[in-house]
Nucleic acid binder design. Sequence first.
DNA 1: TGTACATCAGTGAACGCGCGTTCACTGATGTAC
DNA 2: TGTACATCAGTGAACGCGCGTTCACTGATGTAC
Lengths: 188, 188
Amino acid sequence: MPRHPDTRDRIERAALSLFASKGVNATTTKDIAAEVGISEGAIYRHFKGKDDLAWALFSTPYFELADRIDRVVAETATFADRIDQMIDLFCALFDRDADLFAFILLSQHGLLPRVTDGMPNPVESLRRMFQAAIDRRECVGTDANLMAAMALGLVTQPATFILYGRLPRPMADLAPILSEAIKLAVMR
Amino acid sequence: MPRHPDTRDRIERAALSLFASKGVNATTTKDIAAEVGISEGAIYRHFKGKDDLAWALFSTPYFELADRIDRVVAETATFADRIDQMIDLFCALFDRDADLFAFILLSQHGLLPRVTDGMPNPVESLRRMFQAAIDRRECVGTDANLMAAMALGLVTQPATFILYGRLPRPMADLAPILSEAIKLAVMR
DNA sequence: TGTACATCAGTGAACGCGCGTTCACTGATGTAC
DNA sequence: TGTACATCAGTGAACGCGCGTTCACTGATGTAC
């Protein structure tokens, strides 16, 4: 029985917060240890190393997001409903843990190369959703990747603006406007 | 008269390419020197250091972009024309130098803090453009930051997809679709 | 034209620093008998 | 209950490595006379 059974969680939360604000490379193991109030060596009782920690923090919610998108698709029938549900999902995730959102957005370039073809992938899930809408003539476009990119950018850029203080929290307040904008832009 | 009058340019191009694909932190002075075919020390004949090089590469086109956006606004009268011109501007810049686009997108988080209030700022320029449209009742929204964020994301995310190979080059081919989508989403 | 000197982009070895990681050791807790 | 032992999350000092940067030196080029 460990004396401090929450140390692993505290390392994860401290690392996530630091990774979100400074990026993985600019965050040192010393930073993380200081934030948690333990020695640097203690981190290695819970994780193989800094890279292992960053990958654990990235991949778990990243794969989970793909699964959630797939579930939204499974539980709704029309393109319009799917867009509404998808927006609600993104807003809820952002408002629950903005650090996580910032970290994933910021670390994509460095960590996405580790996402190989067999793994769950939110972008692929989104593409499939748009492909289905195109096939059923519910979407104006013909390229599912392009439609997915436009919709994704239309949501993530306002989220980024919130992180920079250009737009107010919570993101859920923006949900109706974002849903409306996407529907106008891509629905037939 | 220097023996190799283009060394500074070659350093800049090599650094930009490396920064674009790996990020500033993950790129070493050794990488840059090897790519150019000079010694690491030679870099310091042209730049104060790695940070100075990164900032030069970032700030010059970043400020220039703000200026170009302002010129588009100055040279057009209607919101619709401004959107068309803005899309053409972004597509042309992307197609001319995708490395530069990738570098700016990727390095925002690390380098934007150095952009202080007096400096030219493309996001501010964009916000002013949308504020003018809102004031003249040409835009559906009421929050210029939100409208700017949606439009920006709708353009930059497809550009990012091109970088990842999810969408084909050139970006200019997407211009009509992107213009149309933005107008549908934000024009009154 | 020839000579002496100044300039400066280049080299490559060396530097110090801070990073991620390791390791011998500690001491609290759980377990066997 | 008491004793001996196993486990393991923690410490903190130390490690090696690679990074950005410096520096004495080189040699090609331009300039003065």
